[in-house]
């Protein structure tokens, strides 16, 4: 299982240590900036960012390296919908299914576990990820105090390296559990799944259609106000009665936004005069 564990760890962010962290360290130590390096690092960040928000990507690539792309795509898509709208706002860290989407895909492919049952593990694993994130944020408090001392000593290279390596730490928070999870945990997890009674795994399997409500609830909590609630109902009715999909809904929204913003600000400019 260790070969698979290594591959999965690469997918979970190990790649970025080679392609992003090492170039960064080279630039920092040489103290020579270049446009090529800047663009290279930025593009690597773009790829890492896409993976960290779109769980489809890590899940599909996990599927690909383990030889079953279809399962990866299915698990990624399903997990994605469960967590649509759940994101970091301010300093509140929500459960993150990044690691869960990878581990669940690996579990299904490596142990031939039932997909519906395995999806029951997504939420507990996401909460575990969240705890790791919170732990790392606490550890980072120690590092920022270290940075204060470096600033006092005018240790520029130290500061530069410290923040870069902390950035790599966010990848390690996923890489290490992915490696150990596949190397040691997959068989135990498969055993655990076989003990869970059918009624429970059935029920947990159908949370896939229910959990998007949480994501949208969190989204509305941030953006909803009396002024914009009507647009929510317009979108809802368009989809409920006319089966409008996400893309068409977005176009509808943009049209309404253009009209509404123009009307509103035209009035306010008039009254200002």
């Amino acid at each position: 299982m260790w070969k698979e564990a290594f591959l999965v760890a690469l997918v979970a962010g190990g790649w970025s240590i080679f392609l992003k962290t090492i170039p960064e360290i080279i630039v920092i130590l040489s103290k020579k900036e270049s446009k090529f390096a800047a663009w290279w690092i930025t593009i690597m960040r773009g790829i890492a960012d896409a993976g960290s928000y779109a769980y489809i990507i890590p899940a599909a690539i996990t599927g690909l390296v383990l030889g079953d792309l279809k399962t990866g795509l299915y698990v990624g898509g399903t997990v994605q919908l469960m967590f649509l709208g759940v994101f970091i706002v301010g300093a509140s860290i929500p459960p993150s299914p990044f690691l869960a989407s990878i581990l669940t895909t690996a579990l299904i492919i490596l142990t031939k576990a039932n997909i519906g049952e395995a999806l029951a593990l997504v939420v507990p694993l996401s909460v575990a990820s969240q705890l790791l994130t919170l732990a790392f944020m606490s550890l980072n408090v120690f590092f920022v105090h270290w940075a204060d001392r470096m600033a006092e000593n005018e240790n520029t290279v130290g500061l530069d390296l410290l923040n870069t390596l902390c950035g790599t730490g966010w990848h390690l928070v996923n890489v290490i559990p992915a490696f150990l999870g596949v190397g040691l945990g997959v068989e135990a997890a498969a055993k655990l799944l076989s003990v869970i009674p059918d009624w429970l795994s059935n029920g947990l399997g159908s949370t896939g259609g229910i959990l998007p409500a949480l994501g949208f609830g969190m989204l509305l909590l941030i953006i909803a106000s009396n002024e914009v609630w009507p647009f929510f109902f317009i979108g809802f009715l368009a989809a409920a009665y006319m089966k409008v999909n996400a893309l068409a809904g977005a176009i509808l929204g943009v049209c309404m936004a253009l009209v509404y913003v123009r009307l509103k600000f035209a009035n306010s400019e008039k009254s200002a005069k």
Binding site: L81, L84, G85, G209, I210, P212, A213, F216, L219, L220, I223, A224, S225, E227, V228, W229, F231, F232, F233, I234, G235, F236, L237, A238, A239, A240, K243, V244, N245, A246, A248, G249, A250, L252, G253, V254, M256, A257, L258, Y260, V261, K264, F265
Partner: peptide, 25 residues
Amino acid sequence: EKFVLGAKVVAMTVAGVMVASLISL
């Protein structure tokens, strides 16, 4: 202000669409 308001209008519309199409109950 215009950008925030516009983005909110689009976000609310899309949220409405997705609540109807993605939550299966």
